[in-house]
Simulated scan of single mutants.
Amino acid sequence: MKKMNFLYVLSFLFLFIGCSPKQAKKEISNSKYCANELSLLSVSDSLKKIKIDYSLEEEPLLNSIAKKIDTELCLKTIHFGVILANEDVANMYVQRECDKNIVSCYNRGTETYILLNKNGHLLMKDGVITIDSVKYWMRKNFSSKDDDHYKRVSIRWDTKTPKDSIEKTFTNVMNGYLLTYEDLSQQLFSKKVCDLETSQVNILKKKLPFKLRLQFGEQFLTPPPPPIDVIEE
């Protein structure tokens, strides 16, 4: 009887281990992104994935993030994943200045700013656009062949900004990077991102790393109300 029980457990473990790769493939197939796109947007397994309260003021929000990822944020660049309502995970980073007497310098020359007001109106660079237009703005301004083209995005919102507007903006930033990667992929390899080899995906990562920063410590400018100029595809 004991021998039969042992064989039953062994068979169960073999079945479980054998199904794990299939389960991983199933998770990819259920995603709206292909495996290469997921790799470009990836949140490393070593990073904490958390949910955040968008209604918190700056200091409480930073303290909440530090507590959830169990990491001191002061004068560091800290990466983590933010779990969205649709179960997607947005890869982000934050830089916190804790000592007001220390002057820290970050290169913002290739970074574009997104600001959301309490009504969900979005200001990007120097104009108000719709949230759905963010990805097209990025494709136009991130795909430039000039060395000084935009490469990073920072985002900040009002404590009363609707959660769905914030998360929709995160998604559009992710899709903006993907549109840019498609252009780069065609330029470099004459192939779609989803058809690239792993080594080619790594080249795209190196050429344009996905970088989305939570913007803190800088003056918040309130985007004006519509009318708005919509950037079309």
Rank of each mutant, 00 (worst) to 15 (best):
V134N: 01
I65C: 01
V9G: 02
S133D: 04
S143L: 03
S11Y: 08
V173Q: 01
L196G: 06
D183E: 14
I155P: 00
K2I: 13
D195P: 09
K25M: 12
D70N: 15
A35V: 14
E197V: 01
L40F: 12
V43A: 08
E97T: 12
A24I: 15
Y93E: 07
K118C: 07
P227C: 09
L61E: 08
Q219T: 15
G18T: 13
L214C: 03
G176W: 00
N175W: 06
M138R: 00
Y150A: 05
M174Q: 14
W137Q: 00
E182V: 05
I231W: 05
F80W: 04
L61D: 03
M1K: 06
E233N: 11
E218I: 12
G109V: 03
T171I: 15
K206E: 15
C105F: 12
K3A: 12
E233L: 05
K207T: 09
M1N: 10
Q23S: 11
D229C: 11
I131Q: 06
T222F: 03
Q186K: 12
K160D: 02
P225Q: 06
F142W: 05
C19G: 11
D53C: 03
I114S: 06
V9A: 12
D147Y: 09
S39W: 07
I129L: 07
I50Q: 04
E57P: 02
N91V: 06
Y150N: 01
E27P: 01
S185L: 04
L184D: 04
K191L: 12
K48M: 04
L15D: 03
T112D: 07
N107Q: 07
E232P: 04
V201W: 13
N117K: 03
R108M: 07
I17C: 13
